[in-house]
Design a protein around this nucleic acid. Structure first.
Lengths: 219, 219
DNA sequence: TTAGCTTCCGACCGATCGGTTGCTATATTC
DNA sequence: GAATATAGCAACCGATCGGTCGGAAGCTAA
C-alpha cells in the first residue's frame, strides 16, 4: 500500500521512527522498545520498520544517536555562546537542570535510564552510552580546568571530585522528578549547584583571590 | 520427580527462588527476571516456580521485599547501635557507601535499578519501591532533625536539601561504580559526605557552637 | 494404613518476541 | 517509455513470554 517513497520522504520516515523510538525508550527503556510496538504506533508493518535498520540493535543504537542529538541541541548548543571556564559551567549546568525540568524526554533523562538498564551487561549499547557519558565529562573537565587556571575556581579544586558531585546533583534531580514527581527538586538542584559553582564576584579578575569560596556558607 | 516437600523444605525452596530472583533482577531488571529463566537456573519447571507465587507480579513484589530485607541487614541494622543524630547519619551513610562498594547486589543498588526501570509507569511495583524510598528518607529526616536540635548540624539546615544532596552522592556512587567501574568512586563519595556531614568536634556539646561549619573547606 | 493435601512436573495455551521472505507498487534512471 | 531500484506489506518462522491443567509423588493427619 505504501510502496517506494521519494528519497527525502524516506529520510523523514526514518526520522519519525527514531523520534518515536526515543519517546518510547525514555519511558520503557531500550528493551521496552519493541519492533511490534513501534510498528503499531507508527501504523506500519514490522518489516517496514526493520527495513530501515536491519536489526533491533542497529535500531537501538540509532535511537541512542537521536537522543544524543536532542541532548546536544537542548544543553551544550544552548550555551555555546557562553565563554569558557566557570561562566560556561554555570550556564551548562543550568541548561542541564532546565532540560530535566522541562521534561525534554518524557521518561526523564534518556541516558540515565539506558545507563541503568545496561550497566550490568556488555555489548555495543552499553559502550555507546558510556562513550557519550565520557565525552560530556571531558567537556566539563576542560572548562573546570579553565576555571581553575583563570582563578574562578580554587587552585586546589579536585576536578574529578567536582564532576562526581555535579553528576550526583543531576542524578538526584532526575530521581526526585521521576520517582517522586517532586516539583521542588529543580530548586534544590540549583541550590546545590550554586554551592559547587559559586558565581564569580563582580570584582575584577585581579581581585578574585579575595573572593570568599562559599559565599552562601553551609546549609 | 520432586513431589511434596516438608513444610520447612518448602520455605527454603521459596527463599532460594527469591534469592536467585534478587540476583537476576539486580543485573537485568525486574523485567529481565523471567519465569523461564528463573526455572532454568533453579533447575525447576516454570510451574514449580509459579506455584509459589501465582503471578509474576507477586513474584516481583516478593523479590522487592527480599531485597529490602537484605538492604536492611546491610545498612540500617549495622548501625542500629549507633546513637541518634549526626553520629547515626555518618555511620549510616558510611554503611550505605560500603554496601555499594562491596557490591552486595551484583548489579549495583537494587532499588536504584528498579526505580529507574519503573519510574515512568504506574502500578504496585513502582509504588512498593517508592514506599521503601520514602521510609528510608523519613528515617534520615528524623536523625537530621535530631542533629539540628542537638547542635551537631547548623540550625538553619534545610533538611530536604540535605537529603537531596546525600541521595545525589549515593546515586553518583552507584553510577560511577556500575557504568565506569571507577574504583575511586567510593573515596569520592566519602569525601563528599565528609563535607555534607562534618565530624562533630572533640569539644563538649556545650562548646559546639564555635565549631567551624566546614573544617575541610572547599574542595 | 489410609486419605488428603500439596509440591512439582510435563505438556500445552495464546500472545508476542526479533527476524525472513516474496511480492507490489512507485520513484528514479537510462 | 522501459528498466531498475526500493519502501513497505502480508504472511510466516522458531523461540520465548506469562500462565493453565492434570497427574505423579510424597509428607502429614486421621
Amino acid at each position: 500500500m505504501s510502496p517506494r517513497k521519494s528519497a527525502v520522504e524516506t529520510r523523514r520516515t526514518r526520522q519519525r521512527i527514531l523520534d518515536r523510538g526515543v519517546a518510547i525508550a525514555s519511558v520503557d527503556g531500550l528493551e521496552g522498545l519493541t519492533i511490534g510496538r513501534l510498528a503499531a504506533e507508527m501504523e506500519m508493518s514490522k518489516a517496514g520498520i526493520l527495513g530501515h535498520f536491519g536489526t533491533k540493535e542497529t535500531l537501538q543504537l540509532a535511537v541512542i544517536d537521536t537522543a544524543a542529538e536532542l541532548f546536544t541541541r537542548e544543553v551544550p548548543a544552548r550555551v555555546r555562546a557562553t565563554g569558557r571556564g566557570l561562566p560556561y559551567l554555570r550556564a551548562a549546568c543550568e541548561a542541564w537542570v532546565s532540560y530535566l525540568e522541562r521534561g525534554v524526554f518524557p521518561g526523564g533523562c534518556f541516558f540515565t535510564s539506558v545507563a541503568a538498564e545496561f550497566d550490568g551487561r556488555g555489548g555495543p549499547i552499553r559502550d555507546a552510552v558510556a562513550a557519550l557519558q565520557t565525552q560530556w565529562q571531558r567537556n566539563l573537565t576542560l572548562h573546570i580546568r579553565h576555571a581553575v587556571v583563570s582563578g574562578d575556581l580554587s587552585a586546589d579544586t579536585d576536578v574529578e571530585q567536582l564532576i562526581y558531585e555535579l553528576t550526583g546533583v543531576i542524578l538526584s534531580l532526575n530521581h526526585f522528578l521521576q520517582l517522586n514527581h517532586d516539583a521542588t527538586a529543580p530548586a534544590r538542584a540549583r541550590r546545590a549547584l550554586q554551592r559547587l559553582l559559586p558565581a564569580p564576584s563582580a570584582e575584577l579578575s585581579t581581585a578574585r583571590s579575595i573572593r570568599p569560596q562559599f559565599s552562601n556558607g553551609g546549609y
